[in-house]
Simulated scan of single mutants.
Amino acid sequence: MKNLFVLFAILIASVTSHAQEQFPIGPDHNLTPGSLCSRPTEHRYPEGINYCERDVDSDVKRGRFAAYDQLGFRTRQMDRQAFKIDHYIPLCMGGSNNIDNLWPQHKSVYEITDSLEQVLCQKMAEGKLLQKDAVRIIVQAKNNLDQVPAILARAYAL
């Protein structure tokens, strides 16, 4: 576990130093406040949360890059393969495909947060974590990358 913390510390330091004005290291709260699925294709987990299938078209993705670049970032000048359009509240937690839940997430950021998303959704599936708590945790993590190692350790312990 100690090696995991060291790896995360290195990743976080790299992200924060490289991200200066190039790409967002977290979602902008005005553009991407997050939203939950309101038109579910199914219900999941013991809690029966709404689940939406992934459905984000290319025009919406391009629009998210453009919106963030209007804030001063330069995502469209960077390698598109270094990004994904992230669901701020992940689909597996009941997040929506609406634009207010989407942002361009750089690889160096999702390498830090994606493992936490998987653990939290697994804990939801096991009935050990409620949706409201999982959402609160992932929002905290995506806005405080330096806290992810500790949050991940707590999530594993649930």
Rank of each mutant, 00 (worst) to 15 (best):
R39E: 15
A67Q: 14
A67G: 11
R80V: 11
Q81N: 15
A125I: 08
Q20F: 08
R80F: 09
N50F: 03
V148A: 03
V119Q: 10
I99P: 10
E42D: 14
H43M: 12
N30F: 15
L129C: 02
K61D: 01
I89W: 05
A125C: 10
P46L: 15
H87Q: 10
I112S: 05
E126I: 07
G127Y: 12
A125E: 14
F73K: 03
Y156A: 06
V135C: 00
I10N: 10
K84S: 02
E21W: 09
G48A: 10
G26Q: 15
Q70C: 10
M93H: 09
P104Q: 01
G34Q: 08
R80C: 04
V109K: 00
E126K: 07
R76D: 12
A19F: 01
L71I: 05
G94V: 06
V6P: 02
D69F: 09
S17W: 07
I89A: 07
N101S: 12
F83L: 11
E126W: 05
V56I: 15
V139N: 07
Y45Q: 13
H87P: 05
D28Y: 03
L158V: 02
I99S: 11
G95N: 04
R136F: 02
K128F: 05
I89Q: 12
R64V: 15
E126C: 08
P27S: 12
L145A: 06
K2P: 02
D133E: 11
A67T: 13
I89P: 03
Q20R: 13
Q81K: 15
R154E: 11
A153M: 06
T75M: 14
P149T: 03
N30G: 12
R74N: 15
Y156V: 03
A155H: 00
L120I: 07
P90A: 03
F5S: 10
P90T: 05
I89D: 07
L11A: 02
L31H: 01
K128Y: 06
V135P: 00
D57P: 09
I89C: 06
R80A: 13
Q77G: 10
R74L: 11
I49A: 05
D28N: 11
M124T: 04
I112E: 06
D69A: 05
C52H: 00
Q77A: 13
P27N: 14
C52V: 00
L91Q: 14
R74C: 09
Q147A: 15
I151Y: 01
F5K: 13
C37T: 11
L36G: 12
A82K: 14
Q81L: 13
V139F: 06
Q131Y: 03
L130D: 09
